Simulated scan of single mutants.
Amino acid sequence: MVVDHASGELSLGISGGRSAAGALVRRIVVVGGGITGLTCALACVRAGAHVEVIEAHASATRLPAHIDVVPNLLRDLARLGVAQACVQRGFAYSGLSVVDERGDEGFRLPTPSLAGPQLPPAVGIALADLLDLLEGAAVRSSVDVHRGCTVNRVDSESGRVIAEDGRVWEADLVLIAAGAGSPLASALLGPARPGVLRHAWWHALLPRPPWLDRSTWMAGSVGRRLLLVPISMSRAGVAVVSTEEASGPTDGYALTRQLKSWGSFPRRIAAAIDPSVPVVLHRVTSWLRDPPWHRGAVLCVGASAHVIAPPFGQSAAQDLEDAVVLGELAAAGLDRPRLLRQFTERRSERVRCLHELTERAALWTTQPEPATDLLQLAGEIDRLVATPA
């Protein structure tokens, strides 16, 4: 089948193996150089594979957004050997403070330490800084990164990847890490069924308020939600939740106007944002492909297979779990059929559970209902991710 493009840190061991059919997994091509693609590349090269990453953008994206490195995400970054660098580049914190529109704290949720005693429970970091760290670690580990290269065909039977400029790669396993809505993923597995979530999340960076030393979630009146996270001693990231119906300008002036129409706490945040600097308005949905997420020599990972709702920081965390599980299976010397079968067994049900829980939590942010207990949902998510994938 040919797929067409319509538009304390642990080290993984090295080993090799052969099935009766001789389907070795020694050459891996990753399509997509975002968080999922880079961490998959890093995990697999540390397991002994030769890995190449193909990324359409000629240079790294510098979106004004942050990543909330929650405990299970930090644990998996540690397993890839980059957690300490994230801590040094970002802002370590413990605890989630839940406040109202005046900024008065209603309660505080503890942050479990899952990455070991030598690391903090959680970290805030700029998205651009995390991507820089991951790409640097991948390149130092001998991953070949090809930027400015668009893939327009993948042959799932042979593992051949063909770029728009005519370059061809041969692989034992091709990973589609091109994000949600990837034409390559849809051509391979068919269109994904859309989820029920329809939100818009504004992202911006601002000077860190001196009092901000932990992740802070503002739960105001219906439709007024925001998350404020310290990402360095001098900067913070803010994510403001709106409905998908939000229309009109999508610049910093529009964001600050919205915040100024809310309570005193978001008005203080609006005053700290420079409206002339770039912001991002990200349309958010959630969906999950039915397993298996592979066909022939091609496997979809990250948002190409599952889009997890933003609350509780599990979207990026599940992308990292895909990477770590792949690395472990590659290091175990499994042939391709067994690797893909075990990947499906370890990932599909866990992701399904996280998808269900986080989607319920995300819907609550704009449509609160008495039947939804947010604290109970948070506890269920924490218990599920406390054990590594």
Rank of each mutant, 00 (worst) to 15 (best):
M1I: 06
V2T: 01
L10H: 01
S11P: 10
L12C: 09
G16M: 07
A23G: 11
G32S: 03
G33H: 06
L38Y: 03
C40A: 15
A49D: 02
V51H: 10
V53Y: 05
I54V: 15
E55C: 08
A58D: 12
S59I: 13
S59N: 12
A60E: 12
A60H: 05
T61W: 00
L63V: 12
H66W: 02
I67W: 02
P71H: 15
L73K: 06
G81T: 11
A85Q: 15
C86Q: 07
G90Q: 00
F91I: 06
D104A: 09
E105P: 06
F107T: 08
R108E: 08
L109P: 05
P112C: 08
Q118A: 15
D129L: 08
L130W: 09
G136P: 00
A138K: 08
E164Q: 15
V168S: 14
W169A: 08
A177T: 09
A180G: 10
G190P: 02
P194I: 08
G195M: 11
G195Y: 09
A200W: 01
W202I: 05
H203W: 13
M218A: 09
A219P: 00
V222Y: 09
S234K: 10
G237L: 00
A239K: 01
V240G: 12
V241T: 12
G252T: 13
A254D: 02
T256L: 04
S261N: 04
F265D: 11
A271P: 02
A272P: 10
I273W: 05
I273G: 01
L281G: 06
T285C: 12
S286F: 07
W287V: 02
W293H: 12
H294T: 03
G296F: 00
A297M: 07
C300E: 11
G302F: 12
G302K: 04
H306Y: 08
I308D: 05
A309H: 01
L320D: 04
L326R: 03
G327Q: 04
D335F: 05
P337M: 04
L339C: 09
C353T: 14
T358I: 06
V385Y: 11
